[in-house]
């Protein structure tokens, strides 16, 4: 089963992702409330897909992405943000992040991103 790890300080987002992906056969394994905890969970679960919030306490999404890229997760990350401005997307793109979603998102949008990652198509943003 495809494992999805949610790194986000909002339980609402965790539940929304779980509701979007679980019925389609994905296993949403856990919710890390900040990047530091997220990196520990990545080691624990070796997820196939990681959703990553930008604004979090302790370690934010951009800093976490830098660490995840070192671990080879660049094409497996969906970056989530309430702020969809170009500057932020450019910063994340420059790190090698390929997939983005603005919050709030629809279940089908999350599912589409997950399926693109699963199929190994890294071209979508």
């Amino acid at each position: 089963m495809t494992k999805v790890l949610v790194i986000d300080d909002s339980p609402f987002i965790f539940k929304a992702i779980k509701k979007a992906l679980t019925p389609k056969g994905f296993e949403v394994v856990d919710n890390a409330s900040n990047g530091q905890v997220g990196l520990e969970m990545v080691q624990k679960y070796s997820p196939d897909i990681i959703t990553l919030d930008v604004t979090m306490p302790v370690m934010d999404g951009i800093e976490t992405a830098r660490e995840l890229l070192k671990l080879g997760y660049s094409s497996k990350i969906v970056m989530l943000s309430a702020m969809g401005d170009e500057a932020l997307i450019d910063e994340a793109k420059s790190l090698g992040i390929k997939h983005f979603l603005s919050k709030p998102f629809k279940a089908e949008q999350m599912l589409e991103k997950a399926q693109i990652i699963l199929e190994g198509n890294g071209s979508a943003v």
């Binding site: 909002s10 702020m83 969809g84």
Partner: peptide
């Protein structure tokens, strides 16, 4: 509290965008 914070974050994020 966390849900309300997320709601505020979303509409303020949309506005700043």
């Amino acid at each position: 509290y966390l849900y309300m914070a997320e709601f505020a974050n979303m509409f303020c994020g949309r506005a700043t965008t």
